[in-house]
């Protein structure tokens, strides 16, 4: 269970003046976070992962406090065990698919970690590109490697920031199946951000809708 109760104001010129006030509980399983661009979806993911710091409030995952302004708790990103699939994937350009996936695997000998990385690539049916560099991959392949990398580190939760926005419609349908499948097989809770209504409707078992920095609808199953 992920509990969020935060406020954040942006005065930065780039972000315009934007104020975010969120209070929600998110259960395990698959949650879709939807809403128009600029609603604050990505900001919410970044606050959960520790990339952006809220002004005040509290973020807690499975009784582990990530952030608590009163107690001045702010757990560093690397200790939160939050898998993040970035919009542009952020695959390390100087590493092969296998090396990218290996990067976050914490335990085992190098052979064991390699085997695990290959297993994760197999989960997304991309064993054949194990030795390729990101620039030699299609958008869909990069997307799968990014997912495999995030899940291989065995995160407590996976945050997916519009992971399919850069792939073509045909690939998108297939990838959606694979994403759902990966969630079911790993049992890791997913928060999936999208502004695409069709995607949201298809995936939505638990659904949160945001608008202008507020949550306007939360349909979540507490677990």
């Amino acid at each position: 269970m992920l509990t969020i109760d935060v406020r954040k104001q942006f005065f930065d010129k780039r972000e315009a003046s934007f104020d975010l006030e969120l209070s929600v509980e998110i259960g395990s399983g698959f949650t879709v976070l939807t809403g128009p661009s600029g609603a604050g979806k990505t900001t919410l993911l970044k606050m959960i992962s520790g990339i952006i710091r809220p002004d005040r409030g509290r973020i807690e995952l499975d009784r582990k406090v990530f952030f608590e302004s009163e107690l001045r708790i702010d757990v560093p990103i690397r200790e939160r065990q939050v898998g993040f699939v970035f919009q542009d994937y952020a695959l390390f350009p100087h590493m092969t698919a296998t090396e990218n996936v290996c990067y976050g695997i914490k335990t085992g000998s190098s052979a064991e970690r390699r085997d695990k990385a290959l297993e994760m690539l197999a989960l997304f049916h991309i064993e054949h590109i194990a030795a390729r560099m990101p620039r030699e991959m299609s958008g869909g392949e990069q997307q799968r490697v990014a997912l495999a990398r995030a899940l291989a580190s065995e995160p407590a939760i996976a945050l997916l920031d519009e992971p399919l926005s850069a792939v073509d419609v045909e690939t998108r349908g297939k990838l959606l199946d694979e994403v759902e499948n990966a969630q079911e097989r790993t049992g890791i809770p997913f928060i999936y951000v999208t502004h695409n209504e069709a995607e949201a409707a298809r995936l939505g078992r638990q659904r949160i809708t945001m608008r202008a920095g507020r949550i306007v609808e939360a349909n979540v199953v507490a677990s």
Binding site: I77, R78, F86, G104, K106
Partner: peptide, 12 residues
Amino acid sequence: QYELASYTLGKG
């Protein structure tokens, strides 16, 4: 984004 990705993968 590369450094952030590395942090989320548990690296200092």
